[in-house]
């Protein structure tokens, strides 16, 4: 159904294959000029660089919203990466990653959520899906080097005074 065109960026812009099986899955692509109004379902990984209004259901596959992608829909995927714009809820079975260029307005439900420095997000984040125990917490991306910040682990400013009322 999805035709990959030659002038599109290479697969290197696609999701990192960290969670994939040894045999690479097929990756379909929606080009920047494509506009789909309706639901999207399938059984292969998908890169969306165009516009989609509807619902994206690829529960067992990876979904990437490219930088030029504009989605007004809920997205269901195994791993969801957002580099473009999404207005809708994201349901990631394994993880949701909002890249630095990503803009998301909606809610995220996933056991692992990464918000890269520079990303914009408004909505609720639920990292403890029903039926699971304590969340698996994803540390911020390398672009948010919390632990690497110099002096961070050292003692901070000592309180000059502390009061408690009443």
């Amino acid at each position: 159904m999805w035709k990959k065109t030659d002038d599109e960026p290479t697969i290197s812009a696609a999701p990192r294959p960290q969670s994939r099986a040894a045999q690479p899955a097929a990756v379909a692509s929606l080009g920047p000029s494509i506009f789909i109004k309706g639901d999207l379902t399938g059984e292969e990984d998908l890169i969306i660089r165009g516009r989609v209004e509807g619902e994206v259901r690829l529960k067992d596959n990876n979904v990437t919203v490219g930088e030029s992608g504009k989605i007004k829909a809920d997205i269901y995927g195994k791993s969801i990466r957002v580099e473009g714009q999404v207005k809708g809820n994201l349901y990631g079975g394994q993880e949701v990653v909002i890249r630095a260029s990503g803009r998301v307005q909606g809610n995220i439900v996933s056991p692992r959520v990464t918000l890269e420095n520079g990303s914009k997000f408004k909505g609720a984040i639920d990292m403890e899906p029903a039926g699971e125990g304590k969340s698996s917490i994803t540390k911020p991306s390398p672009q948010i080097p919390v632990a690497a910040k110099p002096g961070a682990a050292a003692a901070g400013s000592k309180p000059a005074s502390a009061s408690s009322t009443p």
């Binding site: 914009k120 990292m127 948010i144």
Partner: peptide, 14 residues
């Protein structure tokens, strides 16, 4: 603003 470390921290507290 949305900051990954903050979300992760509070998520770790359920």
């Amino acid at each position: 603003p949305a900051i990954g470390a903050n979300v992760a921290f509070f998520a770790s507290l359920s």
